[in-house]
Amino acid sequence: MTREVNLLMLPGADALVREICAAEGVDPATLTRLLEIEQDYAGMIRRRGIQDAIDATLGAEAERPL
């Protein structure tokens, strides 16, 4: 996950992300996708579209059982 969004590059960060996502029942790929969306909207003053993009991602995620 860290490579795609180039975040959390510290040693041990990947394992931490997996552990925390597992505890909250979140797919790490969903977190990655949401971080990408957030980066896509960096520097924008009007950010209405980000809510639709989050909705599309969480819509797919919500169909998965917790």
């Binding site: 040693p11 041990g12 960060a13 931490l16 925390i20 029942g25 979140v26 969903t30 969480l58 917790l66």
Partner: peptide, 20 residues
């Protein structure tokens, strides 16, 4: 789901800082 991801992010922020 948004709340669950939000909680994961909050934990991540709390635990990332002390790493390394």
């Amino acid at each position: 789901r948004a709340d669950a991801v939000g909680r994961a992010i909050a934990k991540l922020i709390e635990r990332l800082f002390p790493l390394n």
